[in-house]
């Protein structure tokens, strides 16, 4: 235990200082929290506007999609809170922050991840959490030990999968000049995809956001499994249980991309 405390001390010191500095400008922090909540709320409204005009979409009714939104937005917001700064690595490269990381005796990626934290995302996570609770209440969930386990598994895996997306984007941007928009297509496009019923996707979209970047596994598939709905083509109803596998795959992709990116930086970049 003491060993763990000692090993994590460097990271805790940095994170504690980031949190202090964000809360120290109270007016700014309150504004950040409010705006973050508003963004989450408007995104929920967009889903609501579409689903209110039809009975069901991709096999989900409004109640079910609120649950999908809740899981996706809560896990994305928490991943954004902890990992969201990773994909701004071009700024770190320009400011030489990455070179400074090299001079410290911790792994680069861990330093990057723990170099900042966006507490304001808590507000948006609050919107997601509310949608999740409402979604669980208004849907006809057959509560049992296994359904509780499924929800817990979905939340943990969703968080891990979105976190991996930010790390993947950071690694990819060592290669891509001005590549932030290209990676955003999959990180933030991925978040948008995660709130959709994957049943409406055609095959190429299923390949990209169902499996390559496993967004369907973050919220939609666990909800399909939880509510006992039939899955769409390629995605049987039990696939929600495989969310942790998807998270592992996302991390494998992220770590390989990160490693290649760092090699590229050390070998080719200046």
């Amino acid at each position: 235990m003491g060993d763990l405390a000692a090993r994590t001390a460097p990271y805790r010191a940095v994170l504690a200082s980031r949190m202090r500095s964000q809360r120290s400008y109270r007016a700014n922090f309150a504004l950040d929290l409010a705006s973050s909540a508003l963004v989450g709320f408007v995104e929920l409204a967009e889903v609501w506007v579409i689903f209110r005009s039809v009975d069901s979409l991709g096999g989900l009714d409004l109640a079910a999609v609120v649950l999908v939104f809740g899981v996706a937005d809560l896990t994305f917001s928490l991943a954004d809170l902890a990992f969201g700064h990773c994909d701004t690595i071009p700024t770190y490269l320009r400011a030489g922050t990455l070179d400074v990381f090299y001079l410290r005796p911790q792994p680069l990626l861990l330093q990057l991840i723990t170099s900042d934290i966006s507490l304001r995302r808590l507000a948006r996570a609050g919107v997601g959490a509310t949608a999740l609770v409402v979604g669980l209440a208004i849907n006809d969930v057959a509560w049992s030990a296994s359904s509780v386990a499924l929800v817990a598994l979905a939340l943990a895996s969703g968080f891990a999968t979105f976190a991996a997306m930010f790390v993947w984007a950071a690694g990819a941007q060592f290669y891509l000049i001005d590549g932030a928009e290209a990676t955003n297509a999959f990180v933030y496009g991925g978040r948008y995809a995660a709130t959709q019923p994957a049943a409406v996707w055609d095959r190429p979209l299923k390949a990209v956001f169902g499996f390559l970047f496993p967004m369907a596994f973050t919220a939609y598939l666990p909800v399909v499994t939880l509510l006992g709905l039939p899955g769409p083509e390629w995605m049987p109803g039990w696939l929600g249980w495989c969310a942790p596998v998807a998270a592992l795959w996302a991390w494998l992709l992220a770590l390989l991309t990160w490693r290649a990116g760092v090699r590229h930086y050390q070998g080719g970049g200046g």
Partner: peptide, 9 residues
């Protein structure tokens, strides 16, 4: 300085 002291254990 405090953070760096923690970083260098």
């Amino acid at each position: 300085f405090r953070i760096l002291a923690a970083i260098h254990s």
